[in-house]
Amino acid sequence: MENTKLREQFIRDMKLKGFAEGTQKAYLSCVILFVKKYNRNPQELGETEIKEYLFQLSEEGRSKTYINQCYSGLRFLYETTLKRDWESYKIPRSKQKKRLPVALSQQEIYTLITETKNLKHKAIFSVMYSGGLRVKETTSLKADDIDSKQMRIYVSDGKGGKDRYTILSNTALKDLREYCKTYRITDSYLFKGRDSETPLSNRTVQSVFKQIKEKEGLDKRATVHSIRHSFATHMLESGVSIYHLQRLMGHTQVQTTSKYLHISNLSALQITSVQDKLFGSVKEL
Rank of each mutant, 00 (worst) to 15 (best):
K142I: 10
L112W: 06
T138D: 02
H234G: 00
Q206C: 06
Y38M: 03
S88P: 03
N202K: 10
Y27F: 09
T65W: 05
E8I: 13
R228F: 03
E44H: 04
R247I: 10
R177F: 03
D187Y: 08
I167F: 08
L112Y: 08
A172N: 02
V31D: 01
H234P: 00
L57N: 01
L104K: 05
E197K: 15
A143G: 01
P101K: 03
K17A: 14
L269S: 09
F191H: 06
S238H: 08
S63W: 05
T171Q: 15
K90N: 14
K51G: 07
T186G: 13
Y179G: 01
L54C: 08
K83D: 15
L176M: 06
E49T: 05
D219V: 06
E60L: 12
T80D: 15
T81C: 05
I109F: 07
L104D: 00
N39H: 12
I11L: 14
K210M: 11
I185P: 07
Y89Q: 09
T171V: 14
G73I: 09
F19R: 04
P92Q: 05
F125A: 03
Q275E: 13
V102H: 12
L261K: 06
K181Y: 11
L278A: 13
E216W: 01
E237R: 06
F76D: 03
C180M: 12
I167M: 09
T80S: 15
S72T: 10
P101C: 03
L16N: 12
Y165K: 03
V254W: 04
Y38T: 01
K174L: 14
S140K: 11
C70D: 04
K210P: 02
M128Y: 04
S267R: 15
R99D: 09
E44I: 05
C70Q: 07
I91G: 05
T139R: 06
A123H: 02
V208T: 12
Y243M: 13
I263P: 06
D163M: 02
Y78C: 10
Y189D: 04
K181A: 13
G46P: 01
V127Y: 05
